[in-house]
């Protein structure tokens, strides 16, 4: 049986302020799940819960994954260690020998486009993009089976973003890792994810779900643009981001998709697959959704 992250009825509150309410999702090995939502909708809280940085207050969270890794919004590199040692940090924690972990860090660093010179520098001498790449390398060096990412590429220019997207997809194909990523960039979500969950704020909850069946590596640019545009026409998505509902919707038929489970042109939710993936979602509540 493949490994799985299961979240059921998860709720979280900071003091009296409820930030997450009734979150349920499944993430299996080899799949990418993108959580999209406006700032402050509890995405990061959800990720911190998954990473074990917060204790679960209500609901359940179970993970079979053995080697989870996290890539934070900020690079969070140790300023007193060289980039190479930073990349090797997780490996050092596993007790790997210095020579071996340094070689591994170097390979990983090279894979994300950091040359020998950059690896010998301290993080503050690197540009923001290089720091992000080092943080990605640090996470991937562990060869994780679950990768949690919190708006990992938001500080990068589009060229670099593209490079790292490809790197991530290659790594995923090769190692079959599951990715839970948080982003507020819809297009990034459409580019990388197999499932997109849209969140709304106050309290943070899931309001919309999109399944994309075309494998991420086979999606064409025009498909991605079109799908993103169509996603933006969805009433639930517009409401979540506080956008005005478009007056002239593209003919996506979003009217008959009030159920909330969109079938978008990337041919999502083929009935068999749709049943398989969506059946695991618990019975919908009124404000929730179902397919």
């Amino acid at each position: 049986m493949s490994r799985e992250l299961r979240i059921d009825g998860l709720a979280h509150a900071y003091a009296l302020r409820s930030v997450l309410d009734d979150i349920s999702l499944r993430l299996t090995a080899g799949r990418t799940l993108a959580l999209v939502g406006p700032s402050g909708c509890g995405k990061t809280t959800l990720l911190h819960l998954c990473a074990g940085l917060l204790t679960v207050q209500k609901g359940s969270l179970a993970s079979d994954f053995l080697r989870p890794a996290v890539m934070f919004q900020q690079p969070r590199l140790l300023p007193w260690k060289t980039t190479r040692d930073n990349i090797a940090l997780g490996l050092k924690a596993t007790g790997m020998r210095p020579a071996e972990r340094e070689a591994r860090a170097e390979t990983m660093g090279r894979a994300v486009g950091l040359d020998k010179l950059a690896l010998d520098l301290f993080p503050h001498a690197l540009s923001g993009g290089m720091q992000s790449r080092a943080a990605l390398a640090r996470a991937l060096a562990l060869s994780p089976d679950l990768l949690l990412m919190d708006e990992p590429f938001s500080a990068l220019d589009i060229g670099l973003k593209g490079q790292l997207h490809r790197l991530l997809l290659d790594h995923q194909t090769e190692h079959g890792l599951a990715v839970l990523m948080i982003t507020h960039d819809l297009m990034e979500a459409v580019r990388l994810a197999d499932t997109i969950l849209v969140m709304a704020a106050d309290p943070g909850r899931l309001v919309h779900r999109v399944e994309l069946t075309t494998p991420a590596r086979q999606r064409g640019e025009s498909d991605i643009y079109r799908t993103t545009a169509e996603l933006l026409q969805e009433p639930a998505v517009c409401a979540s981001f506080g956008l005005d509902l478009p007056r002239t919707g593209i003919a996506t038929g979003c009217h008959h998709r009030r159920s909330g489970c969109a079938v978008l042109p990337l041919r999502a939710c083929s009935s068999a697959d749709g049943a398989g993936t969506c059946a695991a979602t618990p019975a919908p509540r009124k404000k929730g959704f179902s397919c």
């Binding site: 911190h48 990473a51 074990g52 940085l53 890794a69 996290v70 934070f72 900020q74 969070r76 140790l78 940090l89 997780g90 924690a93 596993t94 640090r138 562990l142």
Partner: peptide, 13 residues
């Protein structure tokens, strides 16, 4: 605090 979180996520002994 961010670095402390990072350290516990990467399971530093």
């Amino acid at each position: 605090g961010h670095l402390r979180e990072m350290a516990s996520v990467f399971r530093l002994p």
